[in-house]
Amino acid sequence: MKSSAVPLPIENVDTDQIIPARFLKATERKGFGDNLFRDWRYNPDNTPKKDFVLNNPIYSGKILVGGKNFGSGSSREHAAWAIYDYGFRCVVSSFFADIFKGNSLNVGILPVQVSPMFLDSIFKAIEKDPKTELEVNLPDQTITIVATGEKESFGINSYKKHNMTNGFDDIDYLQAMSADIKGYAAASPY
C-alpha cells in the first residue's frame, strides 16, 4: 500500500473521540464513517470545524497517523468500523491500545506500530509536504517515508499476517476445530 497520510499528532486518542457513544445505536455495520471523530470534526450545529484535519482538503489518503496510545478506552469495535468506513486501511502510531489493535486487525485495518522517533519523522515529513507518501509493505513488514527513504520494520504475528494477506477468517479456523473445543468443554469444571 502506498498512500498519502492524514496526521493527527494528539496523544491518547480514545475511542470515545473516534466514535462518540451516542452514535453506537445501530444494529448493522453501516455509515459509521460519517461520525468518525464527530465532536472534533463538527460544531454542535453540525457545521464542520475548519481547523480539524479531516476538514482540511490538503490532507487525504488511506493512512491515518496518530499520537501515542491510539485507540485507548472503550472496546467498541465501532471505532475501527468508523475508521474503515471513512476509507482508512492503515493506522500508524508509536503505541496502540490492545483492544483497538485487535479490533483493527479483525476489520481489515493494519495497525503499524513505529518508534517514537520514526513517528516524529512522519509528522515532520507531512508538515513539510502534505502529499508525502508512505509505503506500507505487509509481506516485508516495513513502512517507508517515500520522499526521504526512511524505513522501519513493524511487528505482526505470522498467523494474523497470513490471514490478512489471504483474507482468511478466525471463525473459519475455529469452526474447523470444533471437535477439540467440544472435547475441552466436556472436561471443564465450569
Binding site: S75, R76, E77, H78, A80, D98, I99, G102, N103, N106, V107, N157, Y159, D170, I171, L174, Q175, S178, I181, A185
Partner: peptide
C-alpha cells in the same frame, strides 16, 4: 477482559477466542 464485536461473534460461534498471551 473486554473484546470487540468480531470477537463476540467468535465466542458465540466457537466459545473460544484468539489472544496472544499478555
Amino acid at each position: 477482559f473486554g473484546i470487540g464485536t468480531s470477537e463476540v461473534e467468535m465466542v458465540l460461534a466457537s466459545q473460544c477466542i484468539m489472544q496472544p498471551k499478555a
